[in-house]
Computed example of a mutant assay.
Amino acid sequence: MTKLRERKNNRKAVLRVLYGAVERNRPEVSGSALHDQLDLPDEDLSAACAYLADDGLISVDWTSHRTPATVSLTHEGLRLMEEEDERKDQG
């Protein structure tokens, strides 16, 4: 079982990858690409995606094995990441 800090870091990493994809005009990221970029175990990636989806920040199409097939930021997720980006630019 991963620790709370690791789970939070995993969720932030997922959001960063998805936001980076949006900046490159790629609204969706395949689960396998996300897995490759983050190098997370399937269960940790799935847990991070499930949490973020439950919060309404991402949309996930799941495989039959409950791993992400495709993942994208929702409007709320995009707004959150843009706000974070603006705070970094101002700080």
Rank of each mutant, 00 (worst) to 15 (best):
T2L: 13
K3I: 04
L4Y: 09
E6A: 06
E6P: 04
E6V: 09
R7M: 06
R7T: 00
K8L: 09
K8I: 07
N9F: 08
N10D: 07
N10H: 11
N10S: 08
R11I: 05
R11W: 10
K12N: 04
K12R: 11
A13I: 04
A13V: 03
V14W: 06
L15H: 05
R16M: 06
R16A: 03
R16G: 00
R16L: 08
V17G: 01
V17F: 10
L18H: 03
G20T: 03
A21D: 05
V22L: 11
V22W: 13
E23I: 07
E23Q: 11
R24G: 01
R24Q: 08
R24V: 00
N25I: 06
N25M: 15
R26M: 10
R26P: 00
R26H: 01
P27N: 07
P27H: 13
E28Q: 08
V29P: 05
V29Y: 06
G31R: 15
G31C: 06
S32E: 09
S32T: 02
L34R: 11
L34W: 10
H35S: 09
D36A: 10
Q37Y: 15
L38W: 12
L38C: 03
L38H: 02
L40T: 00
L40A: 04
D42Q: 15
D42G: 11
D44Y: 14
D44R: 15
L45G: 06
L45T: 03
S46M: 10
A47R: 11
A47Q: 09
A48E: 01
A48D: 00
A48N: 02
C49Q: 07
C49S: 06
Y51T: 02
Y51V: 00
A53V: 05
A53P: 10
A53K: 15
A53I: 06
D54R: 13
D55V: 00
D55M: 13
D55Y: 12
G56M: 09
G56A: 08
L57Q: 02
L57V: 00
L57D: 03
L57H: 02
I58Y: 07
I58A: 05
I58L: 11
S59G: 14
S59E: 13
S59D: 13
S59F: 13
D61H: 15
D61V: 11
S64E: 13
S64H: 09
H65A: 08
H65F: 14
H65M: 08
H65T: 00
R66S: 05
R66K: 09
P68T: 02
T70E: 06
T70K: 13
V71T: 04
V71L: 06
V71M: 11
S72I: 03
S72G: 09
L73Y: 05
T74N: 10
T74R: 07
T74H: 07
H75N: 04
H75W: 14
H75I: 03
E76P: 01
E76H: 10
E76N: 12
L78F: 12
L78H: 08
R79D: 11
R79L: 12
R79W: 08
L80I: 00
M81Q: 09
E82V: 04
E82A: 04
E83Y: 15
E83W: 12
E84D: 10
E84F: 11
E84V: 02
E84N: 05
D85N: 14
D85Y: 14
D85F: 14
E86Q: 13
K88G: 01
D89L: 14
D89C: 02
D89R: 15
Q90P: 01
Q90L: 13
